[in-house]
């Protein structure tokens, strides 16, 4: 170990609108940092190799894989998780649509799925069903068969556009 490479890194960031300072192991990924260090257990570690999407969170405005970003890399970032997005009401309509359409069963994929869906819904146009499917193609759900999720996203996209 040289004096420039560190195995524990000090980071300061914003999580769900609140300032956070921490010292994290070099190899710790963001989702473990959120879950283990901050107790934000909404998003899940599931495959830990970037395929399933259960760990999807928002970093600096973008949906990213929490297992494919080191906590050390989040220094200075603005991170939003399902807990913060719920508290702020930012995706209330989407969450309500998921409940109404039963677009979740076991709920394990849902926090990551919602972040991915919210990402798509920031676009202007109402996405076609196959665009929704394509956008969600990196988020695995074993329970629902996806159709209810597509329905929920489509209904929110239409409602938002109708309201605008």
């Amino acid at each position: 170990m040289t004096d420039v490479f560190r195995d524990k890194i000090d980071i300061a960031l914003s999580v769900n609108g609140e300032p956070v300072e921490a010292r994290v192991p070099a190899g710790r990924h963001l989702i473990d940092f959120l879950r283990l260090d901050l107790g934000l257990t909404g998003a899940h570690a599931s495959c830990e190799h970037g395929v399933c999407g259960a760990c999807t969170v928002r970093v600096d405005g973008d949906a990213v894989r929490g297992c494919l970003m080191l906590a050390a890399q989040a220094d200075g970032a603005e991170v939003w998780t399902i807990e913060g997005l719920s508290d702020s009401g930012a995706i209330r309509d989407l969450q309500d649509a998921f409940v109404a359409r039963n677009a979740l069963q076991c709920g394990f994929c849902t926090p990551g799925m919602l972040v991915a869906c919210a990402d798509l819904l920031t676009r202007d146009a109402v996405p076609a069903r196959d665009e929704i499917r394509e956008h969600l193609s990196g988020n695995y759900c074993r329970c629902t068969g996806y159709e209810a999720i597509v329905d929920a996203v489509e209904s929110v996209a239409k409602a938002r556009r109708g309201a605008a």
Partner: peptide
């Protein structure tokens, strides 16, 4: 369902 969509599982 309502708590699961808020990450409160």
């Amino acid at each position: 369902a309502a708590r699961l969509v808020e990450g409160r599982g």
